[in-house]
Design a protein around this nucleic acid. Sequence first.
DNA 1: TGCATATTGTAACATATGTTACATTTTATC
DNA 2: GATAAAATGTAACATATGTTACAATATGCA
Lengths: 221, 221
Amino acid sequence: MEELVGNPLFKGIHPKKIEEIFSKVFYQEKVYEIEEIIAHSDDDCENLLIVMEGIVRGEMIDFSGKTIKIEDIPAPNPVATAFLFGQRRKLPVNIVANTKVRMMRIPRDSVIKMFQMNSYFLENYLNMISSRAQFLSMKIKFLSFKTIKGKIAQLLLDSLGSGGDTIILNRSQQSLADLFGVARPSLARAMGEMVRDKLIRVERKEVKVLNRKGLNQLMQA
Amino acid sequence: MEELVGNPLFKGIHPKKIEEIFSKVFYQEKVYEIEEIIAHSDDDCENLLIVMEGIVRGEMIDFSGKTIKIEDIPAPNPVATAFLFGQRRKLPVNIVANTKVRMMRIPRDSVIKMFQMNSYFLENYLNMISSRAQFLSMKIKFLSFKTIKGKIAQLLLDSLGSGGDTIILNRSQQSLADLFGVARPSLARAMGEMVRDKLIRVERKEVKVLNRKGLNQLMQA
DNA sequence: TGCATATTGTAACATATGTTACATTTTATC
DNA sequence: GATAAAATGTAACATATGTTACAATATGCA
């Protein structure tokens, strides 16, 4: 069980205690070879999966059969903790072995027992899904700005904080456009108009905010 | 405690049992008048708040100080369950009383004790934040499709799965439009065009997929 | 320095979506 | 069933963004 030390789900729990917990609940371990599919998208999510060794990836399959990588999950981390409970207890992605991996599989019932045996484990689990919900919430705030100028304003005011009025953009226009999910010339045009309207001044990678109130208004729409 | 029957956090728990739980942990109740601010955005989230009576709203404050209503939360429901744990334990919104309200306030420690006293309560809580994470996850998926038709295609093919070819939409056009982050008439138009192009056939809440390949193509763009 | 390459600015035009307004249909309530 | 309320269909028009193409800079490298 030493592999579980360092796993965020077992943070703050003494290794001896971890041993003790696992002596009292049912679980399985299984080894997968490279590129083997560990779990399919839409499979019922009845078990907590933990990467003990190696790296797995989550990938989406679109309907034409193409796959899109979503994220890599290395040991020692759990997989899809937000789908073991809740209304839709199904995996949203395929889980595939990037390397040879060893996975631990703990049934939901065992997990609940573990929650009641050890409040650290419970808090760690709660922290994990809560953090995820918080992160997604932030991301949505960003994505749901409709206009390009709104996204720019959000980015600028966010990275500005309270002090100062200049930001160094360390990304190319193209990468910014990708981040926003817009076309590069459209981004250039939007920034050009903001300069024209004296909201900002741009010099190479340096952006100076001239009119905070104006930027705020762009975020409303 | 009868007000808690019907509260999703206490689903499946016998009223007597609820009494018993609350006899063993610390909590407070407080009454707020109309338009009184119950909690401020960025306040540390140290307590589980439950609306016992009345309706509260969450509202965001933008940089210029204007407020934007986010959602109404009527009794008997908890508030901001996803912010009691996790990395950023701060309220993202102001909580304001829409009507005269009575709120229950349970410290995080008490909540954890309650988790360990009653596994229904624990599962209900887990279900609630998990469902929220799942909902946000789904929303992001839709937001990142550029075109409305793409979003529709994604929704249809997703809820279709492998078998059958008809879906019952249990949401109003408006709520779908909100989910997609588009305007309602735009959604109606897009669906109309898809019907015209013989990709789908719509009859009230029932949608029949006529051309899967065509829907796939809409998702590529 | 000179050259090649990448990045950025700009323009004209096409298109998707938003906005507003109203008619029509469905649903709920008495 | 009658009525009001909600949801939906549709149209005309405004606007933001995408697309394509090319010129103007900036950047890296020999």
